[in-house]
Design a protein around this nucleic acid. Structure first.
Lengths: 216, 216
DNA sequence: TAAAAAATCAAATCGTCATTAGATTATCAT
DNA sequence: ATGATAATCTAATGACGATTTGATTTTTTA
C-alpha cells in the first residue's frame, strides 16, 4: 500500500533548497553530492533515494525557481491595468524574487549551460538507464520551453503597450532581453544589507526602462 | 641569454583563445586541460609549460577579455562629446565586442565564480607552491579591481551627463548595473546569423536606455 | 505487533582529471 | 656547430567524486 513519507525524512524541497545554496556558492560542476548532502545532514548516497542523479537534482532546482516566478508574474499579465503599471509590477516581483532567493536566481543564470550540455552518458547502457536519461532530456526540453514562456510574458506586455499606444514602438524581443538581462544580473551582484533592498532596486529599474536617461 | 620563443611553438595567446572557446562550451569545471590542449594540437602536459595551472589559465582568459574591452572604451570616456553620444559608443563597443567574441564574453560572465572560489589547495604545501598560489590570489584581486574600474567608466559618464544636465538624476550605480547586466546577457543569448547583428542590437539598447518606453 | 515500504548509511567501484616526472626534440645565440 | 633553452611528449601519480551495492534503521499500515 502507498504510504505517506516518513516524518524523519528530509523532504525533497529541503534538498532542492540546499542544493540551490551550494550551487550558488560553487557552481554545478564544483558542487559535490556530498556538499549538498552535508547541508541537510545526509550522506551522498542518501540523495539517490530522492533523485535519480545529479542532473535530475539540478533540473529540480531550476524547475522550482521557474515555477515560482511564473506563478507570481502570470496573473499580472492577465490582469487589466495600464501596461506601464503591469510592467512595474512584473519587474518588482521578478527582482524581489531574485533578491530574496539569490541562490535559485543565480542557478537560473549560471547553470543553464550545465543543463544544455547534458551528456547522454555512453554508459554500460542498459535499456533502463537509457530510458531514464531519455526522460531527463524530455524534462530538460520542457524546462526550456517554459523558460521561453516566461520571457514571453514580458514580450506580451510590451506588445500590448505598443498596440494600445502606451509604449513607443520599440523592438519587443530585444527590449525583453534587455530587461531580463538586467534582472538576471541582480542575482549576481545583490548582497543582503546593501544600500538598497529588492523593492527599491526594482523601482529604479522600472523608472529606467520606462523613462530613460534623457529629459523629454 | 634571453631567447625569443621558438617558431614551432603555439603562442600563449593561441592557448588563451582556445581555452575561451572550450570554456564557453563547457564551463570551467567541466573543461579539462586535455580539451584545451586538443584545441591547439598539444597534450595536456604541454600546457603546463605555458601556465602554472588551470586557474592561472582561466585568469589569463579573463584578463585578456577585460583588457581588450577596457582598451576600447577608455578613450571614449576621456573624449569630449555629448554624454549621450559617449554612452552610445560605449554600448556599441561593448556589445559588439561581446558578440564578436562570445567565448571570452561568456567566460567573463560565467567564470567569475570559479575565480572567486579559488581554493587555496591544502596541498603537501611546499613553500614554493604556497608562493605561487599567493601570486595567483594577488592577480585575482587585481582583476576584480580592474573589473570595477571598467564598471566605473560607465558610472563616470552617467555622472558627467547628470552634472551637465544632459541626463536625468538617475541612481548612477544602479543604472550602471542595469546597463551592464543587459550587456552581459547578450553573450548568453546571441547567435551568429540571427535577426540582428551586434551593431543593431547595440543601437536598440542605446535607444532603450536613453529614451525609455514611454512617449514624452 | 508484523510485514512492507521508506529513508538512511557505510563501503566499494570505477572513472576521470589535474598535475608531475623524466625523457626527447626543436630552435636559437654565439 | 654546439651548448643552452624552449617546447613538447609519454607515462605515471594521486585525488577526488558520482554512482552502486547491500545492509540497517524507521515508520506506517493493516
Amino acid at each position: 500500500m502507498a504510504r505517506k513519507p516518513a516524518d524523519q525524512s528530509v523532504h525533497k524541497d529541503d534538498i532542492i533548497m540546499a542544493a540551490a545554496d551550494v550551487l550558488q556558492r560553487n557552481g554545478y560542476e564544483a558542487t559535490t553530492m556530498k556538499d549538498i548532502a552535508a547541508q541537510v545532514n545526509l550522506t551522498a548516497a542518501s540523495l539517490y533515494h530522492h533523485f535519480r542523479n545529479k542532473d535530475e537534482l539540478l533540473l529540480a532546482v531550476l524547475e522550482a525557481g521557474l515555477d515560482h516566478v511564473i506563478g507570481e508574474i502570470e496573473p499580472i499579465v492577465e490582469s487589466t491595468r495600464p501596461c506601464a503599471e503591469k510592467l512595474r509590477l512584473m519587474i518588482a516581483l521578478h527582482v524581489v524574487s531574485l533578491t530574496q532567493n539569490t541562490a535559485v536566481g543565480a542557478a537560473m543564470v549560471f547553470e543553464i549551460r550545465s543543463l544544455m550540455s547534458l551528456k547522454t552518458p555512453p554508459r554500460n547502457g542498459s535499456a533502463f538507464d537509457a530510458d531514464a536519461q531519455q526522460g531527463l532530456l524530455q524534462r530538460r526540453d520542457t524546462f526550456f520551453a517554459r523558460r521561453d514562456y516566461f520571457e514571453d510574458l514580458f514580450r506580451r506586455v510590451l506588445r500590448e503597450g505598443i498596440a494600445v499606444g502606451e509604449f513607443k514602438p520599440i523592438d519587443v524581443p530585444i527590449f525583453s532581453k534587455m530587461i531580463l538581462g538586467a534582472h538576471n544580473w541582480v542575482s549576481v551582484w545583490y548582497r543582503e544589507g546593501g544600500r538598497l533592498n529588492g523593492d527599491q532596486i526594482a523601482a529604479l529599474f522600472a523608472d529606467g526602462f520606462l523613462k530613460g536617461l534623457l529629459h523629454e
